[in-house]
Nucleic acid binder design. Structure first.
Lengths: 341, 341
DNA sequence: TTGAAAGCGCTAACAC
DNA sequence: GTGTTAGCGCTTTCAA
């Protein structure tokens, strides 16, 4: 068992050495106002002399806060942990917390054992709030935390009527803009490689595709839409192969993720199509910065940095406020034109 | 501020409901022996009924331990955080901790502010021990932790007489084996693309190179060794270009990292050499699984999983034991032959 | 086997 | 301004 070495100086000892009361030392340590400057100096001196460091367990117990928040990655496939998507968010969250006294704790939750342990950790008061990344629709963790009354902010939504505070990209508008761009550049027969429609993000992106077509007076043909079974490149290849055989005349494709787009690209080439000349491809840029593709694709980019910062802002608000109304945020995406599609 | 919602049940309330004393509830919660089965059941019942979760701050304060360890990434270049090298270690550490009641906390330390905050967090008793990844020689963190008496285990060494417990790969032997392999396969003029020699890992790898040559009765020529200014591909390209111009007759190269090897490969090709036919290349496999190179290179692989598990073992030992003698570990590497070099 | 009680080191409310 | 004091909720003797 580790913990503070025995012999670690306490507030009391500092007070004794400085010749003041414990309350005063506490005020100095916490930079509270109402302490004479000379006293403050004397206390600081004693602190330095003794090498005093506050016992955080005692502080938590008495102060009812942990000064820490957890950023949880609930991902059975831990390899995704290394994706630029997540590192970018982690970075932004770290930055947003840098000027606060709040310690950021990253946590991996892969199994039910780990889920249980983390919930006890959080409910036990070791963190004041929780940020959730990569939440799957069927994950029990978000509701466990909500039920425990812990301030929680999610990256993305699980459904249209998400009950937990979230920060999401405007997937619908992003997809709509992408398809509108394709229409603007003269493409007429635009296919869609959708993600699995049991995921809300896939629903939104497909909706955006449809809305853009309808906005242009085109009725979206179901023969132009293929649903991938997941977001992998392989799904993209299969879906695209399917799409070409069904509608060989298509001249553009909207893919619901960068991985699906990469797969679609493979399939198009295998079918002898040139991209973007014969067929233009636009995909979402989920793991910004995007994996290099050749040719570079026009993408819909999520503002990951801002997403991370916003998550922190909402979390801090929830931590301070009384249970005010949830105010989730949906951030705009950006169309990054990289080809002459 | 968050923390346990007001109204969270306490040990005392559980005791009252179960009609027992607080001590008994504590014993049940901690699975301590010496409680009659019927009592235990009654207490469990009350715990469930109330939804009781122990307050971890109180437990820490009274029990002098946190039941948590930190895995710290001290890396100003946070992008490295996503490298397979680190995700592999994180994964192994997580696995090794899964059967313990210890919560793993990943922490990013990028700036001095964050360094200070983390030290206060750790010294404040929020973790029982610390695992350090990616330590730079001049980083103050390891010594700060050691001075505070916190059980600490490092991945790698900062120098030959490392004072902190560490787990390292046997870089010298790995390099020696790699070069011996080149000699065995008939190569005679073997160059070395070294890493920056102010880093201990680079020293070890170069020493292994020299030892292998000496073992074969060859005196290592200094004209065959080039020191990269860092471990980047660009350094590899420069160093290799230098090497070719100096010793155009070389037929093999030992690179001190996979990135240097990738750069060396570029330079060799640029010079019109075929790899591995004209020139065989062996590099260390630092970011296993290695980035795909074409052609696949023979590499020296570090046992990252075992490194992570060993770090946890040593840390748990240091946490339990009295300050017994440090017993660091150096693990063997594996030569992975992928070409016919 | 179990209950009672003494802290763990701090914050915050209240006196002076 | 500053000292004093009452807990925060738990673990851990020590008796019973």
């Amino acid at each position: 068992m580790g913990r503070q070495r025995p012999g670690t100086p306490t507030l009391e000892e500092v007070a004794a050495l400085a010749g003041v009361g414990r309350g005063t030392v506490s005020r100095v340590v916490n930079n509270a106002a109402g302490v004479r400057d000379s006293t403050r100096r004397a206390v600081r001196q004693a602190i330095t002399e003794l090498g005093y460091v506050p016992n955080l367990a005692a502080r938590s117990l008495a102060g009812h806060r942990a000064d820490a928040v957890a950023l949880v990655m609930t991902e059975p496939d831990w390899r995704l942990f290394g994706e630029p998507f997540f590192t970018e968010v982690v970075h932004a969250v770290g930055d947003a917390l840098t000027d606060t006294p709040v310690q950021l704790l990253l946590t991996l939750v892969r199994t039910d054992t780990e889920r249980q342990r983390f919930v006890e950790y959080a409910r036990g008061g070791r963190v004041d709030g929780v940020l959730l990344m990569s939440v799957h629709a069927e994950d029990a963790l978000p509701d466990m935390l909500a039920k425990a009354g812990l301030p929680t902010v999610m990256l993305g939504r699980r459904s249209g009527d998400e009950t937990i505070t979230y920060v999401d990209a405007d997937n619908t508008a992003g997809a709509r803009g992408a398809v509108a761009h394709l229409l603007d550049t003269g493409r007429t027969t635009i296919g869609a490689v959708s993600g699995p429609l049991d995921m809300y993000v896939a629903q939104c992106r497909l909706r955006g595709y449809r809305e853009a077509l309808e906005g242009a007076g085109v009725t979206p043909a179901s023969s132009l839409v293929v649903e991938g079974s997941d977001f992998t490149e392989q799904s993209g290849r299969r879906a695209m192969a399917d799409l070409i055989s069904r509608r060989p005349e298509l001249d553009a494709v909207f893919a619901a993720s960068d991985t699906l787009a990469a797969g679609a690209l493979d399939a198009l080439r295998a079918a002898g199509r040139r991209v973007p000349r014969d067929v233009a491809v636009i995909g979402f840029d989920d793991v910004h910065p995007a994996r290099p593709t050749d040719p570079p694709l026009t993408t819909v980019r999520q503002p990951l940095g801002e997403i991370g910062r916003t998550m922190v802002r909402l979390l801090l608000e929830e931590m301070e406020d009384s249970p005010a109304g949830r105010r989730s945020v949906v951030l705009p995406t950006e169309l990054v034109v990289r080809d002459s599609a």
